[in-house]
Design a protein around this nucleic acid. Structure first.
Lengths: 285, 285
DNA sequence: TCAGCATGTTTGGCACAACAGAACTGTGTT
DNA sequence: AACACAGTTCTGTTGTGCCAAACATGCTGA
């Protein structure tokens, strides 16, 4: 099987029954965790969960008890409701710790948010797709919520386009083909040619712009960072309301994002974006 | 099962086979996740995991494939190694989001660390036991590492003692009984009477002190915060080297921790510690 | 070049773990 | 009181998920 298509940006669609080695019970447990994650603080009751899982109450109950025994879920009162348990924090901490990114990235993000007042987010590159793993919210009352840990489509976010601007044209075309570049707003780029053009300017400019391409009224600026081998590990981006940024400030803000992304690259022992482009290791189109 | 050498409030030891409704497969999967969490960035191979799980390679393999299919694990090269996948981040984010604590707590922690230069940690109370769920590292090169998401023993950390200082004497005695108050350094409190005395002063003082009771040379100050119903949700603490803090600064620093914990209480709609003690809702001994 | 070893992957058959459904318990509502 | 409903527990049966052993692959050193 050549196209080992791990390409499915949709988490929920794991019904791809091609997998031979799927353990039903475990798969159910993981879906249960996903459901609990959706529930948030209020949690779910056994019956609600069993309905969503399309599994009998008794089986769901057994699953839950197993999760609880291992602290992956906890029971909260009243009327026994279940929500995620503390064990999941340990997992996430271990993962991000292992990446070593948050240690380096967090202070940089904090400074960027402090300086700009905008929400900063950090995404890692997963085969050219952005996966947001951390964020620092700005002081304002408006929150730009992001699901962390999900693989997003790359073509309608500044973070995604920043990552793509470090890919070669072939891969970009492949991604476009694979995702179909669905539109989200009237500004979303939906053709390969437009995308390549946009990425070309992003690359020379040093940062990518999302001008209401993901959400009406929302404006983002993103820049990629690199590790010591010169491969793009991910990107950071800032998000705010379009009405808050006059055109003449875009360049200034974008260069600030670029500079902070470079700080992360340096922290990782990698080159700045400028060095990267000059070094000849960047793919040329 | 002879005592596992590291002081372990025991996540791993879920062999308590009394649990009727344990699903073997799921339990294995969860233990597998725990193992992967220990692995960190390097990950483990199938054989390593199967040995640690005490399960056949083929079964372990099937488990792994199921985890991978749901993005709870990923395969990394070379020589197929497995580590945690991005899905776990989503879980943790959902959990802390739900608690609403990190949103309120994070800025406070940042300010406290910025002001003191010490590492700040946030613990939630789990039946009187502290579970650290977030941290903000200080600028220094020395890092005080904590496993997030683990249930720790409460009697040898400032965070734990801060939480306990909001409990009634009965519960404290029960915890002492349950844990046996094992010693960690020569300063660790190991008798119930000493513990109660220490907690009494902590309570009136407004913050708890860990004077090399957990680790030689390490000094901590912790203070509890309360929600709108006046119950203690957790505590924050700062950690540093004992040699960095002269005796005369302890009070000042402790009161700063107290003040920041109060900020969290206020953010949660709860009373300050002072109001709490005066309000008569605090248990009296 | 070829055994020899140590991985990861695949298969198939059997046993029993884990399903579903029905019975039981508890709590709040009319 | 009787009901309705949700959370538990029990139990028989089936199909799931176990394991052993075979297969494939890659590395080592003779």
């Amino acid at each position: 099987m050549p196209g080992k298509s791990d390409t499915d940006p949709d988490d929920t669609n794991v019904e791809t029954s091609g997998d031979r080695y799927k353990l039903q019970g475990v798969a159910r447990a993981l879906r249960l965790l996903d459901l609990l994650a959706d529930a948030g603080a209020t949690g779910f009751t056994v019956t609600e969960l069993s309905q969503q899982l399309e599994t009998s109450k008794s089986s769901t109950f057994a699953l839950l008890r197993t999760l609880v025994a291992h602290s992956y879920a906890t029971e909260i009162q009243p009327g026994p409701r279940y929500r995620l348990g503390r064990a999941v924090i340990r997992l996430a901490d271990s993962l991000t710790e292992g990446l070593g990114l948050t240690e380096i990235g967090r202070p940089v993000m904090q400074e960027l948010t402090a300086r700009t007042g905008w929400t900063t987010r950090l995404a890692v590159a997963d085969n050219g797709f952005p996966v947001f793993i951390d964020r620092v919210d700005g002081p304002g009352t408006i929150r730009f919520h992001t699901q962390l840990g999900r693989r997003e489509l790359p073509h309608h976010s500044a973070a995604g386009k920043a990552i793509m601007s470090a890919l070669d044209a072939g891969r970009i075309r492949a991604i476009a083909q694979e995702t179909g570049l669905p539109g989200r707003t009237r500004n979303t780029i939906t053709t390969v040619d437009d995308l390549l053009a946009d990425l070309a300017t992003s690359r020379t400019r040093g940062f990518a712009i999302d001008d209401e391409e993901d959400d009406e009224g929302v404006f983002c600026l993103g820049a990629a960072f690199l590790d010591r081998t010169g491969t793009c590990l991910g990107s950071i981006s800032v998000t705010g309301l379009k009405r808050d940024i006059p055109t003449w400030r875009v360049r200034e803000l974008g260069e600030s994002v670029r500079a902070h992304a470079d700080d992360i690259s340096i922290g990782l022992g990698g080159p700045t974006w400028h060095e990267y482009l000059a070094g000849g290791k960047a793919p040329t189109w």
